[in-house]
Amino acid sequence: MAPKKSATSSGTTSSSSSTTASASAALSNASSSAAKSASSGAQQIDQVALSLVQHYQKATPQRTKLIDAFMAFLVVVGALQFAYCVLAGNYPFNAFLSGFSATVGQFVLTASLRIQTTEANKSEFPSVSPERAFADYVVGSMILHFFCINFIN
């Protein structure tokens, strides 16, 4: 029992020493490349972004891209309305609620359309075809518009 014990203990010590060695090596490596990485970090991020965009352009279907463009448009419109409310005050409040919630609601509906029509989520919605999803989306949007126009008076 005793030798075994000693062996394990020696083993652990050796392993620990080896890890410290590797750590120190990594440290030296990092310190040596610190200046290099600072300059190249931006480049790496650029590369990552570039590859991301390239991948998005290559792998995303046309309709999903369309949805994304529309959602970006809604974000811009919603931000403008909210900024106006902050800057100019919320009178008449029902108009603010109506305008802002129309944009936000439209965003939410569009997001659900995107979820339901993405190829990758097909297994989640076996019974919802893209056409069916779009029809739901149209009906939901029209109800939303009806309420918002009514509420803004």
Binding site: V77, Q81, P92, T103, H145, I152
Partner: peptide
């Protein structure tokens, strides 16, 4: 004062 929000609804619907 409500015109920007009316425009907001308009932009959303036309968009």
């Amino acid at each position: 004062g409500a015109w920007p929000w009316l425009a907001g609804i308009g932009a959303t619907v036309t968009g």
